[in-house]
Amino acid sequence: MIEVRELRREFTVTTKVGRFRRERRVVRAVDDVGFEVAAGEAVGYVGPNGAGKSTTIKMLTGILVPTSGFVRVCGVDPARRRRELARRIGVVFGQRSQLWWDLPLRDSFELLRAVYRVPKADYASRLRECVDLLDLGPFLDTPVRQLSLGQRMRGEVVASLLHGPELLVLDEPTIGLDLESKERLREFLADLNRERGTTLLLTTHDLDDIERLCPRLVVIDRGTVLADGALDELRAEVAPERVLVVDLEKPAELVGLPGVRSSRVESNGLRHHLTFSRDTTAAKVISAVAAQAEVHDLAVVEPEIDDVVRRLYARR
């Protein structure tokens, strides 16, 4: 579905030197990236800000032309056959809208039907299915500008699926969404991938997105691929620890917890940050804590994706 080899993209950046002089510098946003995505896969494309994710996505969708390298999406060279490709893929940008802000959702969908020349019957059935699954029915006649971010994002996803694309590319689809909207969107996308076999490629900062949606992960930093594999493998490989935060009813000292490497105490012994490794489970740590003190509240903090990437990078 996607085939990328030795992909490069350079930008010329002019920076001010002193008051009047300017210096032109060539920056490689993407430098020798290569990966393949088979039909039906769901792949997370992750990396810290400025790693080259968006630039890659823009090259995959035909917005940007690569400086050099080989790209095929749906068997097509995106740069040369942008319009043909546009009919076969769907793209969702979390931070820019493809809907008409002053029109009701339904009208935006109708327009996109015309733009993509979707047969009426196909359109009707896809719309009905999407709207049901994403619970958009009550908002179809609301102008987009009046929708909440969560409702709008669901609208964006539907908008990008109306022409039945083989591949759906999502750039930060869950950014800024509340927990419930995130969950609903993930469920829908997982379904889409499983039931309809739509290939997914998504960039995200949210590890939960990956956990729920993507069995496979391509990690990129500073323009190059750092790692490519399953999330659990990668995480185990770099073994970042998780943190259990517990609030106790009464101040207490906790000792002899299994797998806990370090701890930090706050609020006079009421709150404990317990860092534990992968060879134990959160449940084991919690029960050990509960055996020593009365627990008021607790939370498990997963390492941020940036953290995983940082470790991968440090390891090289």
Partner: peptide
């Protein structure tokens, strides 16, 4: 600046005509 132009490029139509019509 806002990336709206990229959205136009993602559609199977010409950019100038889209800007004018939309």
């Amino acid at each position: 600046r806002t990336g709206t132009f990229d959205v136009l490029l993602l559609r199977p139509l010409g950019t100038l005509a889209q800007m004018m019509a939309s």
